[in-house]
Computed example of a mutant assay.
Amino acid sequence: MFERLKAAMSHMSGDLKSPAKDMMNRMRGDPTTPTEYAKAGQKVAPDVTRLLEEDHRVVMGWFDAYRFETDPSYKEAWAVRICTALVAHMQAEEEILYPAARKAFADKGLVDEAEREHDEAKELIDRIVEAGAASSEEEDLVLTLSAAIQAHVAEEESDFFPKVRQTDLDLYELGERLAARRTELLQELTATGPMPARTLH
């Protein structure tokens, strides 16, 4: 799914209006590691669960921006930004946090459920990529993705993260590793140039 999104993004057109193009390009320069936060004069990202919760707040805000946007060009910019951020977030979480939690938890079912929810979100992202820009199908899929992510966030923050905090895991070390990996993934996804205007079939 990651490679498919990356390939689609590399073939997307760049015909966004200038303000939307600026908004999308800012994503590539946002601080994403504790060191970058400090250099930018922002608070250093805390433990891995707090870092992921911050990601959740940001992407849910982007879903709201998508929902209320009326300009098709800007709407598409939000859809691309949401999908890109979610792919990087989920893959980093699956590579860094979930294996550590699986080792630390007595009940492996929590990790299994979180991974299943990620798989559902990835399927929706694949369908959004296939749907094409500014179509009614794309809008329906983005709103379905929003509902799925909201449910996942609620479960993760009310059950999964509290249990992670009760383990002996080094949450700060995990947070630093996850932030660094997420940065790598975002750079890989956006390495072909400015964030694209739309997906192509």
Rank of each mutant, 00 (worst) to 15 (best):
S146G: 13
E69R: 00
C83Q: 00
G132R: 11
F161E: 03
S135D: 06
R127W: 08
K108E: 13
K75F: 07
L145N: 06
D64P: 02
E130N: 10
L86P: 01
E123C: 07
D55N: 07
A65P: 01
V129R: 06
V80I: 15
E113I: 13
E155M: 14
Q150M: 14
E120F: 06
L169T: 13
V87P: 00
D119P: 01
E176D: 11
L145M: 05
V59Y: 08
L141P: 00
E176S: 13
G61S: 10
E173A: 15
A114N: 08
E93H: 08
Q91I: 15
E138H: 09
R67G: 02
P99R: 10
E113C: 10
E130A: 14
A147K: 15
K122A: 12
Y74R: 13
I149C: 14
P99Y: 11
F105H: 06
R116V: 08
T70I: 13
H89N: 05
R67S: 10
A79P: 09
I82M: 03
V153G: 02
Q150R: 15
C83S: 08
G61N: 11
P162C: 01
E156P: 07
A79N: 09
L97C: 02
M90E: 04
A131Q: 03
A133F: 09
A92P: 03
V129M: 06
V87K: 04
L124C: 02
I82E: 06
H118L: 06
W62M: 10
A114E: 02
L171H: 00
D55R: 01
V111Y: 05
L171T: 02
I82H: 04
W78S: 00
F160D: 01
D168Y: 01
V87S: 03
E156S: 13
P162Q: 09
Y98P: 02
G132L: 11
L178N: 11
K122F: 13
K103L: 15
L124Q: 00
F68M: 07
V164T: 06
A92T: 04
W62E: 04
T144M: 14
R102V: 07
E123P: 01
A131T: 05
V142K: 01
C83P: 02
A151L: 14
A100P: 07
A65R: 10
G61H: 09
R81N: 11
E76C: 11
W62T: 00
V80M: 12
Q166D: 13
W62V: 04
